[in-house]
Write a protein that binds this DNA or RNA. Structure first.
Length: 422
RNA sequence: GCCCGGGUAGUGUAGCCUGGCAACAUAUGGGACUGUGGAUCCUCUGUGGCGGGUUCAAAUCCCGCCUCGGGCCCCA
């Protein structure tokens, strides 16, 4: 017996149908916002990812050498590949450039619910604009994607790294000090932040104002923290515009300002946001994104970029936890030949139905009618066509409605119209 | 990488503590039923995650590993 590799999964027909439904739903939302889908390879050069995220992450990357000695890696995420693609081949495309993707990614991590070694991400990047309306649209689209697939209970949090950085500057905190604070802020351990600040030379009063600011969702309170002429004021008014547009024009109202969003890496600039599904427990983040700069890191001409990624597997889990009613995908018709002699004619009829776009299955086990009906029933097929010599003499078949339990004799020429009318 | 809890036919479970023929339900194939389903009955097939130890004897006790899950770490 062989076993699945740790952290990977098989998907049954039912699961695959669910996943395909959600995938198509997500992709159509991207498209509705004018985004175009792209694809990149499953593996890339290892340095693409280490350049972006540092050598540390190599522990969590599926890295390998190929037979030519090239250092390669299964992609752990898709932003870097998309930006590589952009810098290599798409820099001259008209702006803004709106790209989305859907694909599997790989991380060597301890698996648990909502975290797998092979997982799927849907996401997008927008290149060449940093207007408030572009960012508001980005956030609204992330929110809309999750709402459109049918999630009821999600939480959208919006922050801004430039503003956080300005607070550090204003408080006169060194890079080292910031490194101590950021993990605590990220984990919302504000009491620990507060008690650490005096050690870094911050007065109790400032420390209080700082930790209050981190926890407020009132943008005016955040403004009060800053002196009039700091760059943060511009960033704040930008953020205010984004939030206004979200609320009044995109009609996305249930979000929170959360200044304590830090996100992992330092190529994020300005806007950051996250969407959680509280039902999921420990691994509850469904979506994360923001503005970032990878283009210059990858050798391209400087241009604003922003994007987000949605955890596809977690979205499915959240839908299941919320007991979402996934549509069922049934076979429309099951054809039963009553005897061996009827098989040829049955196949012929099946083929005609298939040409008409009717999902048609056919008995392939030469089973009796009773068993065949039982099978059709267990597969939730709605209609059964029974093909036997009696009806065939009049160019007819028996069409049986499995739900109602009644049946009628129908001319072969009329089957399609009969089926389509129901 | 750390702590904790699981793993018994395809699926869901019992038995484990206190070692003694592996059980039940359901599903699958065949049949009762040679032209009519969901019911009923009969029947075939299919089981201890893997490896080692203790023992006359291991699903059961012990050890290691694999794997799933809860919580950490991390989360690009």
């Amino acid at each position: 017996m062989f076993q699945l590799p740790r952290g990977t999964r098989d998907f049954t027909p039912e699961e695959t149908e669910k996943r395909r439904y959600v995938e198509e739903n997500m992709l159509s939302t991207f498209k509705s916002f004018g985004y175009k889908e792209i694809q990149t390879p499953t593996f890339e050069t290892l340095e693409l990812f280490t350049a972006k995220s540092g050598d540390l992450i190599i522990d969590e990357i599926y890295a390998f050498s190929d037979k030519g000695g090239r250092e390669l890696a299964l992609r752990p995420e898709l932003t870097a590949p998309v930006m590589r693609f952009y810098v290599e081949k798409m820099q001259m495309e008209p702006k803004p450039l709106k790209l989305f993707y859907f694909g599997n990614c790989f991380r060597y991590d301890r698996p648990q619910k909502g975290r797998y070694r092979e997982f799927w991400q849907a996401g997008c990047e927008i290149v060449g604009t940093n207007t408030p309306e572009a960012y508001a649209e980005l956030v609204a689209m992330a929110y809309t994607i999750l709402k459109n697939v049918g999630l009821k209970n999600i939480k959208l949090n919006i922050g801004n790294l430039n503003i956080i950085n300005s607070t550090f500057t204003q408080l006169g905190l060194s890079k080292d000090d910031q490194k101590k604070l950021l993990p605590l802020i990220d984990k919302s351990q504000f009491d620990d932040v507060f008690s650490l600040l005096p050690d870094l030379g911050i007065t109790n009063d400032s420390a209080k104002k700082f930790t209050d600011m981190l926890q407020t969702s009132d943008i005016n309170k955040i403004k009060e923290f800053f002196k009039e002429d700091t760059p943060a004021i511009d960033e704040l008014s930008n953020m205010e515009k984004i939030l206004d547009l979200l609320k009044s024009s995109f009609n996305v109202k249930d979000f929170q300002i959360k200044m304590s969003i830090v996100r992992g890496l330092d190529y994020y600039k300005g806007l950051v946001f996250e969407i959680d599904a509280p039902v999921l427990g420990a691994e509850k983040q469904l979506c994360g994104g923001g503005a970032y700069d990878l283009v210059t890191l990858f050798g391209g001409r400087e241009t604003p970029t922003a994007g987000f990624a949605v955890g596809f597997d977690r979205t499915i889990l959240a839908l299941e936890t919320e007991q979402f009613a996934f549509p069922s995908f049934k076979t429309d018709v099951y054809i039963i030949p009553v005897s061996k002699e009827m098989i040829g004619k049955s196949i012929e009829i099946a083929q005609n139905l298939r040409k008409e776009g009717i999902l048609t299955d056919l008995d392939l086990l030469r089973r009796g009618i009773g068993k065949s009906l039982k099978y059709a029933n267990s597969k939730n097929v709605e209609k059964v066509i029974i093909i036997g010599p009696k009806e065939l003499e009049n160019d007819s078949v028996t069409l049986r409605d499995m739900k109602a339990g009644d049946q009628e004799v129908v001319k072969i020429a009329d089957i399609v119209s009969k089926l389509k009318n129901n």
